[in-house]
Design a protein around this nucleic acid. Sequence first.
DNA 1: CAGCCTGTAAAAAACCTGTGAACGCAGGAC
DNA 2: GTCCTGCGTTCACAGGTTTTTTACAGGCTG
Lengths: 268, 268
Amino acid sequence: MNQQQIIRLAVVDDDSGFVTVLAKRTDAAGWQQRTLSGAIPPEELVAMKLNALLIDPSVLGDEAWAYLERICGMLPDLGVIVCTGRSTVAQRVRGLRLGVDDWINKPCHPEEAIARIEAVSRRRRRARPQAEAGPVVAGELQIRADRFQAFVGEVSLDLTRREFELLQLLADAQGQVLEREAIYQRVWGYAMAHGDRSVDVFIRKLRQKLEKLSPSWGYIHTHFGVGYRFDPEPADGAALAPPAAAVDAAEAAMPSPPEAVPGGLTAA
Amino acid sequence: MNQQQIIRLAVVDDDSGFVTVLAKRTDAAGWQQRTLSGAIPPEELVAMKLNALLIDPSVLGDEAWAYLERICGMLPDLGVIVCTGRSTVAQRVRGLRLGVDDWINKPCHPEEAIARIEAVSRRRRRARPQAEAGPVVAGELQIRADRFQAFVGEVSLDLTRREFELLQLLADAQGQVLEREAIYQRVWGYAMAHGDRSVDVFIRKLRQKLEKLSPSWGYIHTHFGVGYRFDPEPADGAALAPPAAAVDAAEAAMPSPPEAVPGGLTAA
DNA sequence: CAGCCTGTAAAAAACCTGTGAACGCAGGAC
DNA sequence: GTCCTGCGTTCACAGGTTTTTTACAGGCTG
């Protein structure tokens, strides 16, 4: 029930003030937000695994309409919200017909923008209850949110609800270090009480189940005093290297191709 | 993209001018529109099989918020668009958070209202790609939607309407774990009330009837804390293994062909 | 070395599901 | 019109599972 989904939002807007305010607010909500400049090719948007795109077409110039059409046509799963300084009814109708999900005018209260982004994401998620919500893949691991099932290769992991949600969160943010508080907040849906060890216990359970199916893999790394990090890579030699510095070194090293995520660590 | 779909729209608004203009326009588009007065109970809205509801909460008086919450909570598949004379940011945010899909202010150009209703409906449209006529087959089980009958081999299962719809849903999504809420939503047509056990009871009835015809088959698997999964595979021997160690044994065991999902007996 | 943090295991508490039965309702039989 | 029957819903309790709590041992940091 709780499980507020992680929203990955991209913003295309040159109003830095608005963007900043928005970023502050989305950050607090645990979303991942990044700012894009100009017309990013649809392919790259796919790679970012976005849920929603907030876009001011004025920064695109003449190609705005064409771009919107292309985006909406190619990424039916992406929630697109247009935010313009001013617009006519005809423009809004044209945009909405084209596939835009919502169209708002500035000045727009950030809170309302957030609420509309949420509304669009919610709708979008409901629209495909179990169709093919692309499985999240992390190395050998495959997570199908729609089925509540995780697979290592072909074998199904037998996870309980909490275990599954935790693994999903970790895999979704693979490569990032997640703080305990943040993990708890997202999986349990409310703030962690002082002294609560639930996260640790469930991490252990996950490790056990993962190791049983693919021994010698260190999927889940501990960051002392901080939290945990999930990494599909066999932690190249890290397990063999001196335990102390190895982790940090590895972290700083690889830019991890697909999942750069500039906005950084979640809810710091 | 702009696949013409028949939209069933209901309007709750006392601005007869607006309603009339809208009606003329929706009529031309081939939609079905009806005007409602006041707060129609959710159950009746279900019966109308609406796609979208355009509502001016001012005609509801004090109960507006409660009604919106009830509607949005019970009918997550219904697109709800609120249309108010004026509204504050706080009100709009509250509404959107509550589950309202879009919120527009009057005066609103009918064309834009239409476009927004379309946009909201579009998202929900992709939900059900099925509607196939051919019999669904799952192992020995055969389901003929057209005849409202299910067979195990040659023998006909004698199912009631609810039982049949539940079985159909499960078989349709075989291999997937379906959440209770989702099951209820799709079989009963509205959201499950807290504490409702109907789904469990009907699962039991189905199991009884299925077992009577093909004993020792574990068609329907329970996923503790989540829901149920239907699988035509006889759950390879897991049912025969000692209950305690069964999970461990199966888990450590072998990879299975493509989709067999061996270990998945959660609650054997 | 002291202090804090995490891994682990097991007990305790909370929660969920299976099940049988009672209840109310609606349609059909008489 | 009244009775009967089948269906769907609700309730309560037993039995199991999962989640949380607790305690202790072992590591990491400074």
